[in-house]
Write a protein that binds this DNA or RNA. Structure first.
Lengths: 231, 231
DNA sequence: ATTTAAGACGAACGTTCGTGCTATATACCG
DNA sequence: CGGTATATAGCACGAACGTTCGTCTTAAAT
């Protein structure tokens, strides 16, 4: 996976001095932007929080747009570290597919970014504003969607998921549940939403799994009252 | 339904003169805000577009927050007219439940607001910004969720939907599909997303419907070729 | 015909934004 | 040690923001 290869190269910095503070700036920028948005991420605000001058900070980036793009790239690195890599420790097929969704929900729930999913927030902020920022966000979210879809296809190739399910359709559904949980959590502080999303995803995985695939899913959790005696 | 009662009262205006321009302002405001956001909705921009002075326009509202709140209320009125009322023409039960979702998707697809779903955009803009604006948006979106949930319960009471399905869970799923379609449409211009959301919703309705409920759903559409017609 | 009140206007306020220019401090290299 | 980049700071700018103020026009009420 190209994603894994690039994590090695990203380690060491540019010119040692400036590279380090630049990284420090970007880490703070990601945190602010996830809560206040990429436009609410103000150079003055960022400088104050880091006890720097506006101009000193600004010198690290040629423009505000560059700062936004660099912030997005940093967020992507965090996302890969916090979601993609852990999920890829699970074996290819249904286990990895499930873990991708599970870890994603945990990453929002656990407050990796203080404003929920960084990219969901950025996408809705820039979706009506054409330009490089919007394009990059769209590209990164597509990466995610493609990763989920590929995990679905691999599950089918491994004989763990029925081949009569459309991978694109299922990826759309999983992504929707994640967006829905993120929405409910951010707007209402509803932590139950994550459990709901997990239940919806698991229900679908179970229904479409072959026997060999179903055995790789977590055991059915008993609901209060009654459970999947449905149908 | 209280929603229907309030459509009658909203007809006539306040002081005839001022009420009319105020309404004109708000209609333009809703359109701008749906694309540029409630914060991107600038008083100067609004005044320019309407060939008014900033101060003359501003006098209709005591503050920017008041303008935002009034804009939200106007958007809600549009939403009720364009989505709720048409859906409530369908008979109670599964037909109304399906039509609620179907009309919602059409309302985004058809560009009632040029920036997709007004409330989805506003929610993600203000979900990390406490205050009256955020509270009102959250309240309105809850109204919608409750309306969908009630339609589910009514479908069960009418014996058209199996009672072993959790209404809150199903409402979460339908809402997620709508958010997912809105997301794909705004970020990628993907019109197929609406068809995908409809398919997901219908599939679930069919699976959980009783015989009497299933007969009230639209006929099954044949898919092109095999499921592999996607990209 | 006179008074009153509302609506719209232009100008200006103070603040904050992104962005340049210029000077100083700090670190690295011969 | 001195010299040269590089990093940061200080300062100022033009524009845009929300907001306030005083004035003029216009239509209704007396």
């Amino acid at each position: 996976m190209d994603v894994i290869a690039e994590t090695k190269a990203a380690g060491e910095g540019r010119k040692a001095r400036g590279g380090r503070t630049r990284q420090t700036i970007l880490e703070a920028a990601v945190d602010i932007a996830s809560a206040e948005g990429l436009e609410g991420l103000t150079i003055g605000r960022l400088a104050t929080q880091l006890s720097m001058s506006k101009s000193g900070l600004f010198a690290h980036f040629g423009s505000k747009e560059d700062l936004q793009l660099a912030t997005i790239e940093t967020a992507r690195t965090v996302f890969i570290r916090e979601v993609i890599l852990p999920a890829f420790e699970a074996e290819r097929g249904v286990p990895r597919l499930w873990k991708l969704c599970d870890v994603w929900l945990s990453y929002v729930q656990g407050g990796v970014f203080s404003g929920g999913c960084f990219f969901a927030a950025a996408a809705s902020e820039f979706d009506s504003r054409p330009g490089p920022v919007r394009d990059r966000i769209a590209g990164i979210m597509k990466e995610w969607l493609v990763t989920v879809r590929r995990a679905i296809v691999e599950s089918q190739e491994a004989g763990q998921l029925n081949t009569d399910v459309d991978p694109t359709q299922l990826a759309f559904e999983f992504n929707s549940f994640e967006l829905g949980a993120n929405w409910a959590f951010k707007l209402y502080g509803d932590k139950q939403a994550f459990a709901r999303a997990r239940e919806s995803i698991l229900e679908r995985l179970r229904r479409h799994s072959t026997r060999s695939g179903a055995s790789l899913l977590p055991p059915i959790k008993q609901k209060r009252g009654r459970t999947c005696a449905n149908r």
